[in-house]
Design a protein around this nucleic acid. Structure first.
Lengths: 341, 341
DNA sequence: GTGCCGCGAGAGAGCGCTCTCTCACCTCTC
DNA sequence: GAGAGGTGAGAGAGCGCTCTCTCGCGGCAC
């Protein structure tokens, strides 16, 4: 009776029957085992063709424990979902991850971890065996996510060094070195009255950039740099620049910890009648779209985000195939010289 | 022996043993069946707690045929992967899809269909039972993807109307109506020498915008509109604007089929000493980040991308729970008035 | 007091696959 | 020519879960 239902998707059994061999042999052919006679292999291949057979993923996973899926967990601070996805940064990471995974026939499942519940769901997703491991993109400070995954014993790799020490593999950028590139550029142009717009104080990346900039300026004979804090938005960049201009009216160089804040700074400088780069040199960070859109085009520090994401995926796959020691890879930033400095 | 391996993740069996009940009862508790005595339910809950049990997704899927996953297939023209992911448009779609899915405990798996092989892989992904259905974001003309899914009998919903007729559900924007909003705005400002930068001729959306704009201008007494084609990039917008300026030096209104081309047009207008909006009024399309970043800020046409994406997901879930009739939903665009017109 | 109904719990049969055993057969070697 | 060794194919036991079927037991009506 059941056999009559042609709607039923064909199984190994059906192919075996059609080819007049055992289920095991069909499985061998499907999985490319070499211990199958060429004639028989051909016969099975034909049966697969005619039946329209396609292996069932769940059954396979049930047996061998592998899903071919990894969770790509984007962790924003609570309730920041929408803003996150508009950020091209996220798209670049996705692109890099995808590039590495697809060549290994693996696929990323997207998850948003923007609440305690969602974070637990992300962990459980992997624990249930929906995915083999997780890629964590953590953008905010003190994110509990890495800890959760480590404690659950789930294979995971982090994008950006964890704010608090957690035994987990990660990729990151040499933020301080990037800031130093900016400092050197400003110094080379002869800037002496230099100010900087830093990111949130609880973000390791922001602090690294600030510290790296300050140290490098000191090396170049500028021991003190006035600092204002922003939160990586255009608006906060505007406010910070206005503040700095009030304190240091004769500033001749500005380093902003990201491009968006640099764009904000650019506006305020223009409003105050300062010409960029003639009166004030300005450098951003990230080499994002806005940096290219701005006029003058922003000189900025580039991150090899796609490469970092690819590497992150590669490290996870290593862990999945048994590598147990923790790995951390730090990438070098680059100086992109355009018009603003 | 096996029982001793505490590393083994606990199964229903283990919980059943710990609670002194049958496997079936534990399953009932886990799945929230009501036909379980409260005392027994409590007992089982405790056993789940102590054993750290978590249901195995593959086993479940094997039995009931549902995965809780949908494929989110981004279909670029061959080899356009990287550019795609930098486009915030993609991020907005992802955000909308995610918002709808997560409340139903479902998750999207990202797939890139930028080659024949990749397209087949996307179809097979669902056929293998890795996902219950597919969300197709097709951005280029004559995309074979929708056809492939329909032919394979795989539940799928499309973002944007298919370029060639295919029996498939989709969501789309009323492109012509959006263009008409732009036309009316220009006409209201008194523009009479109006030109437009259209998108690629093989894209339905681009043609709809062009036709809608032309018709609306005609209604407003401007029977002829000079057209140049671009491909939705800044550079192509620059070229098209230069071309139009050569043909229609006294143009006083420009409608670009997307914001990026509008940004390109803006640059060329400035280079040619035209002030926007005083000499020339300029309107874009999409309400993207660049529209807000540009100076003057771009007046533009907004698309409710997140809502469209949410609806697309909703339609797919309807199909998955049995709805069989095709659905198409067309969303209304909005006019976002800023500074450029 | 007997019979019937319904609720709650257990038994057991799969879901479709992989993989280890086992076995049949064939080719060497001495 | 007989035993050893190797190769290719089949049998069958799970993987962990759900769900139907069955059964026991208590409460109610007659």
């Amino acid at each position: 009776m059941r056999e009559k239902l042609s709607q039923r998707t064909p199984t190994l059994e059906d192919v075996a029957k059609a080819a007049g061999v055992s289920r095991a042999t069909v499985s061998r052919v499907v999985n490319g085992s070499t211990t199958v006679d060429a004639r028989m292999r051909h016969q099975v291949a034909k049966a697969i063709e005619t039946t329209g057979y396609i292996p069932n993923a769940a059954a396979r996973t049930l047996v061998n424990g592998r899903t071919g899926t990894v969770a790509l967990v984007i962790s924003g601070s609570d309730g920041s979902a929408d803003q996150l996805f508009r950020d091209p940064f996220f798209g670049r990471i996705t692109g890099g991850v995808l590039r590495h995974l697809r060549s290994r026939s693996m696929h990323p499942t997207l998850m948003l971890a923007d609440s305690g519940e969602a974070r637990q769901e992300a962990v459980d997703f992997v624990r249930r065996g929906n995915a083999d491991g997780a890629l964590l993109v953590s953008t905010h400070a003190g994110d509990p996510l890495p800890r959760l995954f480590v404690d659950a014993g789930v294979p995971a790799v982090l994008f950006a060094r964890p704010a608090v020490p957690v035994p987990i593999s990660f990729v990151d950028l040499a933020h301080a070195a990037g800031a130093a590139l900016a400092a050197d550029r400003l110094a080379d142009r002869g800037c002496r009255r230099v100010v900087t717009i830093a990111g949130p104080a609880d973000l390791p990346a922001a602090n690294d950039r600030l510290a790296g900039f300050q140290r490098a300026m000191e090396r170049r004979g500028v021991p003190y740099v006035e600092v204002a804090r922003g939160n990586f938005t255009i608006g906060s960049g505007e406010r910070a620049m206005a503040e700095l201009l009030a304190t240091v009216p004769d500033a001749d160089g500005v380093f902003a910890a990201n491009d968006l804040m640099a764009v904000g700074a650019l506006r305020v400088l223009h409003e105050h009648g300062r010409s960029v780069p003639d009166d004030v040199a300005l450098i951003g960070f990230d080499d994002s779209e806005p940096a290219q859109l701005a006029r003058p085009r922003l000189t900025t520090i580039s991150q090899p985000v796609e490469q970092m994401a690819e590497r992150m995926a590669a490290i996870l796959l290593d862990h999945l195939s048994g590598a147990t020691e923790l790995t951390s890879v730090v990438f070098d930033p680059g100086l992109i010289i355009r018009e603003s400095a």
